[in-house]
Design a protein around this nucleic acid. Structure first.
Length: 472
RNA sequence: GGAGAGGUGGCCGAGCGGUUGAAGGCGCCUGACUCGAAAUCAGGUUUACCCGUGAGGGUAACGGGGGUUCGAAUCCCUCCCUCUCCGCCA
């Protein structure tokens, strides 16, 4: 959610921001509704004030007369009734006028809120303008000693690389046929060392964040209320990406709570403190979770259909930072959070690069986003010799959101003081992948495959694999 | 699933139709006293929105929503949640 006050002051900034993000939004309409709303609120407030005053002044008298009326008959009763009618005329008139205004507000408010929820956070001025992921800009690359993705795999390693599909098949690490039988397309079953490796990388990533970087390990619900989805900014724009547990329908109860399966642990982590006023001293909050993520992948039909790349269910270690409302601090955390991932990838000898996302690739909630892509030798165009060229594939995404999420989640802290002192301010939030698997198994298996078809397990993962150094 | 109890401010806890944004206590803040601290005393201490350059003014909120009433934290309806006991499951 953006700040309506800022929008009032500088509507052009938000109009331009939305345009840069390719998100259609009617700013004029919002301004008009906002003006109307404020005017109606003013009128309503005035009427209520008057009525409240009346209730205090003449109300008790009405009560007294009503009491008298009970014991009276005939002409006397009529006289009292007349007095009562006169006294009641004013509040009744105020009441109906107020009701009229409330009715109009009841129409305007939902529309205004609905629109406000759709206004994207304008990209930061230093984010390059672009239409889509095509226009993202490479910031940096890292390669392990002895391997450079810009040269062919075979020339450096002495054999033709297999794709992860082939590796997984040959080493029996996954069973796609049965996965699909069980759960439909984009489903899979990890088997044997495939499952073991999956658990190993997740656990390694969690431990890395907890014991090396000092993040608090936290479990979160993956089945959440709509509020949490709206609050974190995944709704309304991404509604079609989420699986719905339709409890309303199932229970035949129109008031029941529907629940949604989260597509990232970010929802749960950010939701932990929704509605709270945090003590300034607890900031920055640094949370890490590992959670199962569910994505419908609507609109991705036909894309990456084979293998472990684009799937409906996976597990992800996610890091979230909730800090004070300070741009410099927020930017510093962004860098740090990317730094953790770079360190992690280096420790596993995975070639990777950082991509500055352009405005068109940011999504509604981000002011800035950097993707981290890992080198996958089995991806990319297949050459004449039947060997793929290799390509970078997105494995991480680091977002900086200012107070966009916290405003929606109503997550604040009291700046500069204890309870009863200092202003309440919306926190800033950031998030970044630490590691998502099984997608991450793709670069892991493909980069560490050997000529004999085996796969070397990078040193840091071995303790999580029963000390084994090799698969196959 | 069956039976009961309950949801009030940062916390505890009163109020059960009117002057209560809400007694009292705890906590916290400011000041006085003190060399300093403790104790004591005095004052202060919710949030959101609207109007106003400002001082300030107004409205709303006692789990959510709706209703009755001139007036609701207090009455009615409904939903949600928490707790206790029983059953069921892990």
């Amino acid at each position: 959610m953006i700040d309506i006050k800022l929008l009032r002051e500088n509507p052009a900034r938000f109009a331009l921001g939305a345009k840069a993000k390719n998100i259609p939004i009617d700013i004029e309409r919002i301004l008009k509704l906002d003006t109307e709303r404020r005017q109606l609120q003013g009128e309503g407030d005035k009427l209520r004030a008057e009525q409240g005053k009346f209730a205090k002044e003449s109300g008790p008298q009405i009560g007294k007369l009503k009491g008298q009326l009970k014991g009276l008959k005939g002409a006397e009763a009529e006289a009292v009734q007349k007095q009562l009618d006169e006294l009641s005329a004013k509040p009744l008139a105020l009441k109906s006028a107020e009701a009229e205004i409330s009715k109009r507000l009841a129409v305007i408010d939902p529309e205004l809120n609905q629109l406000l929820l759709q206004v994207p956070l304008p990209p930061d001025s230093d984010v390059p303008v672009g239409a889509s992921a095509e226009d993202n800009i490479e910031i940096s690359r890292w390669n392990p000693d002895g391997f450079d993705p810009s040269k062919s795999f075979e020339s450096q390693r002495g054999f033709k690389p297999k794709t992860h599909l082939e590796i997984v098949r040959d080493l029996k690490l996954a069973d796609f046929e049965r996965g699909v039988k069980l759960a439909g397309s984009r489903s899979y079953i990890l088997t044997g060392d495939g499952m073991a490796l999956h658990l190993a990388v997740l656990r390694y990533a969690v431990d890395f964040m907890v014991y090396k970087q000092g993040f608090s390990p936290t479990s979160v619900p993956v089945l959440v209320k709509e509020e949490a989805m709206v609050g974190t900014g995944f709704f309304p724009a991404g509604r079609e990406q989420a699986y719905l547990i339709d409890e309303t329908h199932r229970a035949g109860d129109p008031e029941g709570y529907d629940l949604y399966l989260t597509g990232t642990g970010e929802v749960g982590l950010m939701g932990v403190h929704m509605g709270e006023i945090l003590d300034e001293s607890v900031l920055p909050l640094r949370y890490v979770t590992v959670s199962t993520c569910f994505r419908r992948e609507a609109g991705a039909a036909g894309k990456d259909t084979a293998g472990l790349y684009r799937i409906h269910q996976f597990d992800k270690v996610e890091q979230v930072v909730i800090c004070k409302a300070d741009e410099a601090e927020s930017r510093a955390w962004h860098k740090k959070m990317m730094g953790y991932v770079q360190e992690l990838l280096r420790s596993l000898s995975i070639p990777h690069r950082l991509l500055q996302c352009c405005t068109g690739d940011l999504g509604p909630k981000n002011a800035d986003m950097v993707d981290i892509e890992s080198w996958m030798p089995g991806r990319g165009e297949v050459g004449k010799d039947g060997v793929p060229s290799g390509a970078y594939g997105e494995t991480h995404s680091a977002s900086r959101l200012y107070d966009y999420q916290c405003r929606r989640l109503n997550m604040r802290y009291r700046a500069g003081g204890a309870v009863g002192k200092g202003d309440t301010v919306f926190c800033h939030s950031l998030n970044n992948t630490v590691l998502a698997s099984p997608r991450f198994l793709i670069p892991l298996l493909e980069n560490h495959q050997n000529a004999d078809g085996s796969v070397t397990i990078p040193e840091p993962l071995r303790p999580y694999m029963g000390g084994k150094s090799k698969i196959g």
